[in-house]
């Protein structure tokens, strides 16, 4: 099997697992499974109609197939709370979650990489020690604690940033809306960057130290190449594929972090929607949000895989030869 079909198959397996888990979790609850799918406040007649529509009167296996078909087409049913289709609610919130996690990942990746490379180049320096400490701290700092502290400092005591929400109420118009949105997004992103740049930098530093001491770099130095070419073209390019693996590995954690971040800062995103759905026992909404978060993870894993393939000729080569 080629690299690519293997990856694709892996992604599909994860998805199938998620779907099965989702199906089982919400149906194996104590009590009437209907209660987890249909709003208990509906009239008996409409309950019966929905029961038919969801196929709850059929055998489990058939129900599962029906469920698969509906989920793949993003038909998660109606939210108990809002009464609107869950997918409509989610589609509305997804861009906010992607904006939050995407910009946090990009920024912490850039800052962490820069610091890590610099620390690896100047070993034993102050920056290296700071990087090591930041890395160690980031493993034991609860995200919400740091975020609460930031809120208290930068939104209450010294109100530079808004305390809550994705936009001001009432929302401004036009270009001011974008500025307002970014202003609201800034502190959450800063907090996520603060939480993750340390472990990034630590990882990059360790990787670069290893590569800088390797045979190819010795030869590159013997070639009389300038420091910048050594560092970025030779060492960093070599480090890139494993770094992309790190992106891949950090994605699940990042999405978990998004749930908490959106809660702390009251952002309009999928994570907080999931929490509110769970708290409000809005099972169709919770199931949909959970599936969507898993789907985003799997999709970004696949993207990171593709980027890895681009960055590492050993895999790119395999792909070309099989073609």
């Amino acid at each position: 099997m080629t690299y690519w079909s293997r990856r694709l198959l892996g992604a599909l397996t994860v998805l199938f697992f998620v779907l099965t888990l989702n199906f089982a979790l919400f149906r194996l609850m104590p009590g009437d499974p209907v209660a987890s799918l249909i709003d208990p406040r509906f009239s008996p007649e409409s309950k019966e109609a929905l029961r038919k529509a969801y196929g709850l009167d059929r055998p489990q296996a058939e129900q599962f197939l029906l469920y698969l078909k509906r989920t793949v087409t993003f038909d998660f049913g109606l939210s108990f709370i809002s009464g609107r289709p869950v997918w409509q609610e989610l589609r509305n919130r997804l861009p906010h979650t992607v904006a939050l996690t995407g910009s946090a990942l990009a920024l912490s990746g850039l800052i962490g990489t820069f610091l890590g490379v610099t620390a690896a180049r100047r070993r034993g320096g102050l920056l290296e020690r700071a990087t090591l400490t930041a890395g160690a701290l980031s493993f034991s700092f609860p995200s919400f604690f740091l975020q609460l502290l930031l809120l208290l400092l930068l939104a209450v005591f010294w109100p530079l940033f808004p305390l809550r929400g994705s936009v001001s109420v009432p929302a401004p118009q036009g270009a001011a809306l974008i500025a307002d949105y970014l202003h609201h997004l800034a502190l959450p992103v800063i907090s996520l960057v603060l939480l993750s740049f340390g472990s990034w930098a630590l990882y990059v530093r360790n990787l670069m130290v290893k590569i800088l001491g390797s045979e190819p770099l010795f030869l590159a130095r013997a070639k009389g190449l300038p420091e910048s070419i050594l560092l970025w073209r030779h060492a960093f390019r070599t480090a890139l594929p494993p770094l992309l693996t790190l992106v891949l590995l950090s994605l699940p954690g990042l999405l978990s972090g998004a749930v908490i971040t959106e809660t702390v800062f009251s952002l309009h995103g999928v994570g907080r929607f999931l929490l509110e759905s769970i708290q409000g026992q809005d099972y169709p909404a919770a199931g949909g949000a959970f599936y969507l978060l898993a789907l985003v993870t799997v999709a970004s894993n696949l993207l990171a895989d593709a980027a890895y393939g681009m960055a590492d000729p050993r895999i790119r080569f395999e792909r070309e030869r099989r073609r």
Partner: peptide
């Protein structure tokens, strides 16, 4: 591998909720 590839907190949230 499967479990490592999924965001843990949402799973925990759903389970704790249910």
């Amino acid at each position: 591998d499967l479990l490592l590839a999924l965001p843990l907190l949402p799973i925990l949230m759903v389970l704790a909720g249910l």
